[in-house]
Amino acid sequence: MYGLKQDWIPEPQARQFVLEDYESGVPRWCSGCGDFAVLQSLRKLARDEQLLPEKTVVVSGIGCSSRLPHYVKTYGFHGLHGRPLPVASGIRARRPDLHVFVVTGDGDCCAIGTGHWIHAVHYNMKMTVMLLDNSIYGLTKKQTSPTTGKGYSSNTHPDGAMLSALNPLTVTLGITNASFVAQTVDWNPAHLYATLLEAHRHPGLAFVRIIQRCPHFTPDAHEHFQRDPSNVLLLTHPDGIPADDVVLRVFKNRDELDPTDRAAALEHAAREDVLPIGLFLRNPEAERYDLCSAVGLGMSAEKKLAAAQAAVDRFLI
């Protein structure tokens, strides 16, 4: 296929995708798990954006939520615990034609994979990163995670977590080149969907923390917010996550946050009296490493050959 464009195959009919085109297998999550909501939103997003299944890659680490790629009929990479971000970066580096989604959990991203989290945000390569945060290790059966609240009892800390939870939002907002930081909840599908859609359309790395409960190990973690939506603070802004009537009807407690104001974003992200959801930061102008890594893409064999030969000849005797 030398010299032919990647999309050279003539399309006899325009392809139209429906939800089923993105469905694969039967999810093996526990009933009541928030992962179902994320899966549904992602499929809906793919359908609405008419993403070519073969041009879409869902990358994950290890954990309950990292099973997600198995349930989407696109390409998928279910790799190692804590390492989905380097893999996704490597996929993105030389394939700007692919849509890259990353599914990671609070253990995967904020514990074993922390280093990659910081650097992937710094690289700001175009991809949608979904942190499915249920504040507990589920697959290994109830161990404290970095986002477990202080005092919460687990199998590794039966007397309760000793330290306060790490805040993934303030961490992400502090990273140079952070370009899209949002938070949403699994129990409001409309806000979840709207957030993922904005994230997917963002030209850079979009980091979305999705607050979830684990039906087995942290069933009541968000009771406080679910029972009384006024404990949730909806961040609004013309340039924020669009909120439809369904969302506005539920979340009455609102605050406007300019997503270009990083200091204000940090302040909101650190709040503990309410659960802020919405867009904290959006900077489509941030530096992007994937624009650097794609240099020389598609170079002809003749040119490569000539360059290699010229490099060898620098050592001629």
């Binding site: 990479f77 790799g79 380097p86 890594s293 794609a294 020389g296």
Partner: peptide, 22 residues
Amino acid sequence: AAGGFVHQAEDEIAAIGFALGA
């Protein structure tokens, strides 16, 4: 000049992870 790119990763693990993604 030969169409290649050197990625200096944040650590040894990320270096091979990035490579496997590619």
